[in-house]
Structure formats: C-alpha cells, structure tokens
Nucleic acid binder design. Structure first.
Lengths: 202, 202
DNA sequence: ACATACAAACAGACTGGTCGGTCTGTCAAG
DNA sequence: CTTGACAGACCGACCAGTCTGTTTGTATGT
C-alpha cells in the first residue's frame, strides 16, 4: 500500500463517475462510496474537489496523448505514405471499437467544456493543449501527403486536421446518445472515405 | 401579464444558464435571480427541477427542428439538385455564423448526454427523436442524389446522413473549447468538400 | 538491536452553508 | 367565492470542507 495507491484509486473511481454524471453531478461522498476511502483520505490527497477536477483532466490528457501516439505508431508501421498512414490511423480506432475495446464512449474534455468546472481546475489550457496536439500530429501527416500528391479539391489543411478531432467528438456524442458504439466507428469510416477521395487513393 | 409569461421567462433564463453551466450546475435559485421570479412562481409552473429539465429539451428540440427546416427550405430554393441542396444547406449555416448569428455555440442535447439528468426529464427519447429527424431529412436528400449520380466511392448512406449531425456536434465542442465560432464554420466547410467530392460536383 | 521522534496516511464525527422543495398566505380576475 | 398566479419564509437533506485524533512507515541516535 504505497502512498499513491489510494490517490490512484480515487482518481480512477472519480473518472468513471464524472464520465457518467459530469463533474458537478459527482459528489465527493459518491467517490468515497465507490472507493471505500474516507473523507480524511480524500482531502488529504486533494485540497478541494476542484483540485481533483484538475488532476482528473491532467490524467485524462496524458492518456489521450498516449492513445494518439499509440495509434499513430501503429499506422506508421503499416505504410510509408503519409496519406495512407492517416487512413490506417482512423482504421486502427475502428478496429479497436470492433474488438470491443473503448467500452464507454465519450470524452472528458467535452464533458468539461459543457460544464462550469471550478476555476482552480483550470481545465481550459489542458483541453486546448490536447486539441492542439491532435491538430499538430495530423496536420504533419496532411502536409506531407499534400506535398506528394495533388489534392482532389483545395482545402484548408489545419481545418482538415481539426476535422479528425471533430468527428471523434461528434461521434462520441452520437454513440452516447444512441448507446451504440458502432455509430462512432461508422463516423470514423466516413472521414476515412473523405480522406481517400481527397488524396485520390484506392 | 398572461399565464405563460413568467413561465416563458423562466424557460429562457434557464436555457441560457444550463447552456453555460450544465443542468446540474444550474440551481433553481440562480434561475430565480436571473428572472426576478419567486420560488413560489417557479414551483407553481414546474413541479420539480427535473420537470423544468424536460420542458427545456422539449423546447430546444422544437427550436432545433425549426432551424433544420428553415435551412433546408432555404437550400431547396437554391437548387433542384438534391446533392447541391445538401451543400447549400451546410453553406447556409456557415453564412449564418459569418453573419454573427448563432451567438453561443453548443448544443443542449450534448450537454444532457454528458450529464445525469433526473429520470423524470426523460430526455433520451427527445434527443433520439431529434437525431432521427436530422438523419431522415438528410438521408432523403442523399438517396435522391445517389439515384441521380454515381458516388465517387461506395458509402453507407445512413452513416453519411449522421455525419452531418456528428460534424455539428463535434464542431460545437471545438468552437466552445477554443471560444472561436469560426471553427464550427470551418468544420462544416470540410464536410461540404467531402460531399462535393463524393457526388463529383464542382 | 532497539527505543525515540516525526511525519505522512489515513479514519470519521462534525459543521455551516446551500439546494430542491413545501407551506401558508395574498391578491386579482371571473 | 373559487381559482390561478404568484410571494417568500421555512425545512430537511445533502454537500464540500474541517478537525481531532490514530495508525504506520521510516529515519536516527545509542
């Protein structure tokens, strides 16, 4: 039972609860109930509930970046062509969904964006950074791809890079509303077709 | 001062607050403060806070359907070609954004989906119906378009129909996070390019 | 090897304010 | 003289945060 053990368990339980009911809708007592931790334990590790909120997105941003890099690396193994890598990148997520991973669809960033999280959580900067990271990584591929082959239609590449994040976010909402994860997969597949057409692949 | 006047003012103020801070994060007292109404007035019109929640999405779903039909009608004036109508439909939203309308980006549906709204609000059915409405109206155009011209790539048309809603939702999250409404416009523009390529327009 | 010291990691009773909701009225219109 | 539309004091539950301990790991001096 190391120092960080209880803290970690609180973080994980809180993540699940916040994912379901939102940050404001999640009480400290509910987190304690889910972990078996005591009030003293909670406020020993987090000075306020807002501090937990901050720790939660920091953690989530880390996992998010990890997921991004994992799938990007997987895609880079499949092809040397940057356009095909992007396609493979999306396909990699689709395969994961089909394989039953990514159990609960949704995004903590979106959840935070739609709520008023306490100031101290200072979530804006973290979310903005995460969005920027996705844009950078995909834009990089897009620019390489556009340098190799002509685009079938002129587009603003930064916006196109953001489209990846956008379709994920929109797909999450759709999947959550319909309680059907395959909806997210299908939305990613549409984006894949768009890229295919734009880069004249097939 | 008709019967519905106070009720209406409560509904409008509540909408703005919930849009900003989420349903759980919006207290009845805050709504009273924003409207000048009294506690007695509030609970005279709404038996519970959850009932307000229900009234709120019902109202929002009505406005949403109205927006859908307005822009669709505008698009149908511009062309007889269903593919071009869809393009014009999206462009119509982009123009509205450029014109400074659609002040606060976001979607009450997404906000509800990411929170645990009281049972009595029974928001799921309303949201599902709204999504279905968008799918029906766009799918209709897509099928007509696909009957006229060959698709540049085989796609699942219902998923493509959902893509419209998806890009709106994702675009809302992106615009809210970055506090930049033009981001939503740019995302819609990307979807427009996709449709353009798919139907071989230009 | 063992006592002492000290701090980190809790446990859980308690508190003050807030929240949704109630209750007893008042008042104007029909 | 009934009914709908309020007004606002009041209430019990709950919620974030506090406070007073108790246990436990660990560093240190002898």
């Amino acid at each position: 039972m190391t120092t960080t053990d209880t803290r970690q368990r609180i973080l994980e339980a809180a993540h699940d609860l916040v994912f379901e009911r939102g940050f404001t809708g999640t009480t400290v007592d509910a987190i304690l109930g889910a972990t078996g931790a005591s009030k003293g334990a909670f406020f020993h590790h987090f000075p306020t509930k807002g501090a937990l909120g901050k720790a939660l997105i920091d953690r989530y941003a880390l996992l998010d970046a990890e997921v991004l890099e994992t799938h990007m690396a997987r895609a880079e193994e499949q092809s040397d062509d940057p356009a095909e890598q992007l396609i493979a990148f999306l396909k990699s997520f689709e395969d994961d969904i089909d394989a039953g991973e990514l159990t609960q669809p949704g995004c903590l960033f979106a959840s935070y964006v739609y709520e008023q999280i306490p100031e101290e959580a200072d979530s804006d900067a973290v979310i903005l950074r995460a969005i920027a990271l996705w844009r950078e990584r995909t834009l990089e591929k897009l620019e390489q791809a556009a340098a190799i082959r002509p685009l079938a239609h002129p587009v603003d590449l930064p916006s196109l890079a953001d489209q990846v994040w956008t379709v994920f976010e929109g797909g999450f909402v759709l999947a959550r509303a319909t309680k059907d994860q395959t909806k997210l997969r299908d939305q990613l597949a549409q984006l894949r077709v768009y890229l295919t057409l734009l880069f004249g692949l097939d």
